[in-house]
Simulated assay, not measured.
Amino acid sequence: MRDVQLRYFYTIANEGSIRKAAEKLNVAASALSRRIIQLEEDLGIPLFERHARGLNLTDGGRLYYSHARQTLLNEEWVVGEIEAIKDLRRGQIRLHCVEGVIGSILTDAVAEFRAGSPEVKIFINRAGSTGVVKAVAADEVELGLALDPPLHRDVMTLEEVPAPLYAVHSPSFDFPHASPELAELADFPLAIPPDSSYGLRDLIDRAARLRADIQLHAPLHCDSIFGLTGFALSGQGVSILPKCSFINELRDGRLLAKPLQDPPLRDANLTLMARRHRILPPVTRRFCDILAKHLRQAPS
């Protein structure tokens, strides 16, 4: 960053601790402390309230934080524009997404993007839908991809495509229903995510609440799509998944999929999102366009 002092302040404010910020920035804590003291002297006001558990922003500190955040975002945009002049040969893209899209939609989008921009670094982290939204809203990432994510005033939708859920099981597992409702899964062992921070589990819970008499039997609670898919592949029972999570297993006949009829499950969507009012750098916009195309083309 051109303005090192601004970056130092911003990191300390986010971490709430000079020690943690020093570790993140790989700078000596004493040097970091001197920089902040000098900044406070230059501005003529304290930016932090210091206490035993760390640092809190003062009123003036919160105002300066808004300035720092916007300045750093503007610089990121300018650097992105410069990279565009260089034919998008360098840069970085940060994305949080639900795990189910990694092995299919996202992998294909990354392959197409890297064919034209092989030197761009792409950082992908998996999270539940709630975690994806929080990361986008907090400017931790440029893009997020989630299953029926919760609404957030600071997050906007860039692309949204249908992603209905299916009852998924092995051909060896006896499951007679061709197009079941969630209530018809109650007598079968299920694999589901552990809590509603995962968009998949939130949809299941919403559908169950519409039918208060449903008592699901879920011997496996797992936060990994691979675990949920594996449960079905092994013939232990039924998993509830969007098609993008098991498309390869479906194509080669190792899994069967029965569409679910409950409205929350039938009407689910995959949503590509970014922070509202954020100007995405050109290299990110190019990747976003490619990812949106693959979302539209994905079987649902």
Rank of each mutant, 00 (worst) to 15 (best):
R201T: 03
L6T: 06
A298R: 02
A208Y: 08
I225S: 12
M156L: 12
G199Y: 00
S234L: 12
E99A: 15
A138T: 05
A127R: 00
H51T: 01
R89W: 11
I45W: 08
I225F: 13
V168G: 00
L57F: 05
K243Y: 03
S224R: 15
I37M: 13
R251E: 09
T271A: 07
M156G: 07
S66D: 13
A115C: 08
D267E: 11
I18W: 00
P299D: 03
G131E: 01
V4M: 14
P164G: 09
G128A: 00
S224N: 11
D195K: 08
F173V: 04
L158M: 12
E160H: 09
L291S: 04
D42N: 09
I45V: 15
F123P: 03
P162I: 09
V110T: 04
R211W: 10
M273I: 04
L6G: 00
I93D: 02
V98K: 05
P194A: 07
P176C: 13
V283D: 03
T11R: 02
R209W: 04
L203V: 07
P150N: 02
K243N: 11
R69K: 15
P194Q: 08
L291T: 04
R94G: 05
L182K: 06
L182P: 02
D148M: 06
F173E: 06
H277M: 09
N248E: 12
